[in-house]
Nucleic acid binder design. Sequence first.
DNA 1: CGTCCGCTTGACTCAGATCAAACTTGGTGG
DNA 2: CCACCAAGTTTGATCTGAGTCAAGCGGACG
Lengths: 193, 193
Amino acid sequence: MNPFEKLGLSPLAHQQLGKGQSLFHMGDPIARMYFIRQGRIRLVRHLEDGTPIPFHLAAANQMFAEASLFTDHYHCDAIAEEDCSLDVYSKPQLLAAFQGDPKAALSFMAHLAQQVQALRSQIELINIKSATQRVFTYIQGKVPPGDRELTLPQSWKSVAAEIGLTHEALYRALAELQKSKRIERKGRQVRLC
Amino acid sequence: MNPFEKLGLSPLAHQQLGKGQSLFHMGDPIARMYFIRQGRIRLVRHLEDGTPIPFHLAAANQMFAEASLFTDHYHCDAIAEEDCSLDVYSKPQLLAAFQGDPKAALSFMAHLAQQVQALRSQIELINIKSATQRVFTYIQGKVPPGDRELTLPQSWKSVAAEIGLTHEALYRALAELQKSKRIERKGRQVRLC
DNA sequence: CGTCCGCTTGACTCAGATCAAACTTGGTGG
DNA sequence: CCACCAAGTTTGATCTGAGTCAAGCGGACG
């Protein structure tokens, strides 16, 4: 049961997306909202010189680009990180549904609020100067509370881009963290010590 | 007419805040929402080592810490940048008002969505490696659309912190931008060339 | 079986951090 | 009204750590 269905909406369509295909580009008009059934979608912005800045990785059972509900044009690109299956909803229908269902509206508001906090955490993270400390803090933040272990849903290389490091700097930071026994690691699995 | 009054709410109280005083600290329980009548409030997080990371400057006629509406405890500090005068509202009353007024709920959602985009822009900005380019892009983003001039509401020093530079690096970047005729500047006034 | 891509390490460079010091500005209080 | 203090602003010298370039390894996948 996805949040759109809870509102009594049914999808306009389903959409398949192959790995590397893009769902929309910056500047495209926004008419639809998406829910990810399967796969992952990466949201990316680009600097003038073309450098990609990934700022979100939306996973299965999530909606994404929520902010676009109130804008006419996308302000980022969406690219399938792997093969994806999406439910497509109408943006106007969704807005109308919120009018009639304050509970749903509130839950969507909460969702947005949580996004705001997540983004703030990301900013906080990027502001850490030391690469080693930055990576360590990133891992701490990702480890489920109460647990000490974590398996990354993505490559370390893309983590590097997400936290504003080159992949080389990231790998060196990981090596350093292992040497100083602050983490143990095997591939994409990490454990805090 | 502030957004709370539009909902038919009246303030529980008014609150004065002297420059440098803090309104709340990270971890404090959240019972109220604020609207700034006068002055400015800075939202700050702190790294483990105490380095402050300012991530938002809320100005007069704005509400702020919107994300806190759905959380129990603050995840940042709020400090008065200058003498402030605030209207205080009850958080539960506000939530209840949204239940009864879907239009207001939607407008608040839009507000949150806009915050999400602003934060994403900030992340994009911080990811620009070159200090000069970073400062230039920051200014471009701040200049009102259609205009070419801008007067900063804050010191350059605090801009430096906001965009993840030391103040020295910021001033050097400004000097460089002036030398290469990309901006003109006098104190806190800037004009794009 | 070969190619691609993520991973990993080394050497070198350089931009921004750091440390230091002086000048300007604005506000406070005598 | 002026002396004084705090904070922002500005510039210089030095240092350091992340970026860059380069090269090799290994696993996945067609």
